[in-house]
Design a protein around this nucleic acid. Structure first.
Length: 289
DNA sequence: AGGCATGTTACAGG
DNA sequence: ACCTGTAACATGCC
């Protein structure tokens, strides 16, 4: 899915496009997302204003009207498209996106906004979801309740991580993917982080030295910051809500690079692919111990 | 045809 | 109850 940096970019784009607009009507083309959408909940959105858009790890949270929250997870292929009449007329990138039959086929939910504008939730694989919930219930929401600190929060620090991994017999790749430990990372960024730390993904956390833990904290923050700055990554199914592509994927050092040479100077070792818990891991056998 | 894909979670077994 | 790993979800692309 879009990982934290991509969701952050989507959030910022949505703020520019739909903040403070009134939802006129919602049309559900296919409600069989990860969780079946509750049509009567969506009816409540009509006539209400989008007042705030927040991001929590990989979730988007829309505050709508006085007491409604809309919780969105993009899954692997979820994305938002935005259109207005001007875009149609001038055939901007939005128009191209919206008029692409392949994309249109996967438009699952359409929010009709004021001034003939539309916000469209499009999701090829339907691993994403949208839930409309009451404001007072969202703090206890099962999706948000157990999330660990985000990479850029102060709470994600040496002491916290060292304590979290103590006594655990797990590999470092899985721990960093675990949203209860740290929320917002996914397969791509974890691969990149571990390469930067010179740590092999399969390494057991009990064997991490203090120095390595420090490196993990530092490089996680560094890479996430950098990716947000570059507009996220845009491999295959992701682009931000205005159709722009991020640039971070051009800086991938290991992800998807199996068979290629290690990008560290003078290394000349071939990047290896290894499956850990059904997910691909990429690493340099020489640089990552 | 078969394998793979940015994610999460229900379940099984220890 | 805790810990761990695996399979499943839906769809498209190579």
């Amino acid at each position: 899915m879009p990982e934290l940096p991509e969701v952050e970019v989507v959030k910022r784009t949505l703020e520019r496009k739909v903040l403070n607009l009134i939802i006129k009507k919602v049309k559900i083309n296919d409600g069989n997302l990860r969780y079946r959408v509750n049509k009567s909940d969506f009816l409540k959105l009509s006539g209400k204003r989008i007042k705030k858009i927040e991001r929590k790890s990989k979730f988007l949270i829309f505050k709508i009207g006085k007491n409604i929250m809309m919780l969105v997870h993009l899954g692997m292929t979820g994305k938002f498209f935005f259109s207005n009449t001007r875009n149609k007329k001038f055939k901007t990138s939005f128009y191209y996106k919206l008029d692409n039959s392949k994309d249109q086929k996967h438009d699952r939910i359409i929010f009709y906004l004021e001034k003939k504008q539309k916000l469209i939730y499009n999701d090829i694989r339907k691993f994403g979801f949208i839930k409309v919930i009451d404001f007072d219930k969202y703090k206890n929401n099962s999706h948000l309740k157990h999330l660990g600190p985000e990479p850029l929060e102060e709470d994600f620090n040496f002491k916290y991580f060292k304590n979290y991994i103590s006594g655990k017999n797990r590999n470092v790749k899985n721990v960093l993917m675990d949203q209860k430990c740290i929320s917002g990372l996914g397969n791509i960024y974890v691969n990149e982080i571990l390469f930067c730390c010179s740590i092999r993904p399969s390494k057991k956390v009990v064997k991490l030295t203090n120095k390595e833990i420090e490196k993990i904290i530092f490089n996680t923050k560094k890479i996430i910051k950098k990716s947000i700055k570059l507009g996220g990554s845009s491999i295959k199914n992701f682009s931000s809500s205005d159709g722009k592509k991020g640039a971070f994927q051009q800086t991938f050092k290991v992800y998807g690079r199996n068979g290629e040479n290690c990008s560290n100077a003078d290394c000349n070792t071939i990047i290896t692919k290894l499956t850990i818990s059904n997910r691909s891991s990429f690493y340099c056998p020489r640089c990552q111990k």
